[in-house]
Design a protein around this nucleic acid. Structure first.
Lengths: 224, 224
DNA sequence: CAATTTTATCACATTTTTATCACATTTTAG
DNA sequence: CTAAAATGTGATAAAAATGTGATAAAATTG
């Protein structure tokens, strides 16, 4: 049971307040005064169980820090903002934040969320489930019918990209730009070949990746 | 039922990227390389449903362009900036922009905002619905009476073109120029044949595409 | 550095789409 | 009513897009 929490906020007084509460619950709190510091702190303490980020911070704001963190960690993130702003909330969640809460927080509700997040992190990580096909991003594992399917990095990235937006056509160009980071002027058939290999490895789930002629590929998934 | 979006930015690559995404959602995108061009483009296309402006642009920057536009149009405006800068944000809103977003945008969050703006302007976007006939641009699916109808790329493009402006005659020449990219000097009967095939595949909806003798074809649609 | 895995690319097979034609049918003009 | 013009239709050969297996380069691993 881990219990380090990284708490990032530029308001010293608020930080100290929350710090006390958390400590009382038995957590170890590491404080950061800005986003950059929070990211650095997490790098040194990858075993932290939770990161709390304020949106408005110097150097790196909460959203930016969240993005940076998601580049190397799956740690649960709780975002805090001064005002309730729905638009920002959406952006925050999309950036990979796990929770969002507005700032003149009632301590009680706040602690509740922290506890809930801690509980979750003690449990098996999220599994994306598409019928027979399961993806476990935390460990980079893919299962078909419960059986582990070994994928190469490119194949995995490709599957992740496609499955991220089911039922939406992704053009070869889009796929190249995202999965192969740069614009990449290579053989136009590279994607096709990888799709082929991926389909083969996915066995019975291979046909979840459907060709949309002249447009690209699409990950079919009808929720029940 | 129009869905033109004017996209103004001087970075060609960014523009092209966003263009692709928007197109996939079924929007028609008109690109402008600077503010002045954007304003001019809007004058010629007053029916545009949204204008996306980058702040930093040659000739007229986003804020200036926004002001000019507000002199003659109430069109929703989405401002994009390279970095989150609160000062600029305030100024942007004062100028009449409807939304503001920072630039290294995750596409998903970005599309979220676009959709939200389009919704606000009264245009549900995910599914184009013409009675029994439904088109879902994201997945490239066409349904008649709830049943999926598989169309070839040309047929799909043709249907999209016709349905984009219901009750307006589109000449064979117009159709050729748009659906068949270039001016194309082929058999004059090519369009007819495709119309025939399309009608057949649309079954009971086939007669929504009506022939206007000696003038072209027209997509009939009376809203309830 | 050698062994292994991954990746990009190619050539060829297969499938789907498209353009075009010849002829049928319908509409218009005189 | 008849001829001319426009459009509908089915068939089909050519073109385009995609699937596929092999292979050599590139990257990774030990």
């Amino acid at each position: 049971m881990l219990n380090k929490i990284i708490l990032a906020d530029d308001e010293e007084r608020w930080r100290s307040l929350v710090h006390d509460y958390l400590e009382q619950e038995g957590f170890t709190v590491l404080e950061a005064g800005d986003g950059a510091e929070a990211v650095a702190l997490l790098r040194e303490n990858q075993d932290a169980a939770l990161v709390i980020l304020d949106i408005m911070m110097p150097k790196l704001n909460g959203l930016e820090a969240c993005q940076r963190i998601r580049e190397f960690s799956q740690v649960p993130i709780l975002m805090v903002t001064a005002r309730e702003d729905e638009e920002t909330e959406i952006t925050g969640m999309r950036n990979g934040a796990d929770q969002f809460i507005s700032k003149p927080v009632r301590m009680r509700a706040f602690m509740e969320r922290v506890r809930s997040l801690m509980r979750r992190s003690g449990q098996p990580q999220d599994i994306l489930s598409f019928g027979l096909l399961e993806i476990e991003p935390a460990s980079g594992t893919v299962r078909v019918n419960g059986e582990k399917v070994p994928l190469t990095p490119k194949e995995y990235d490709l599957l992740m990209f496609l499955s991220q937006m089911p039922n939406v056509i992704r053009s070869r160009k889009q796929i190249l730009q995202t999965v192969w980071n740069t614009d990449y002027f290579g053989d136009g058939r590279t994607v096709d070949t990888h799709i082929k290999n991926l389909r083969m490895k996915l066995g019975p789930c291979g046909d979840m990746i459907r060709t949309v002629r002249s447009r690209g590929y699409i990950f079919d998934w009808k929720q029940l």
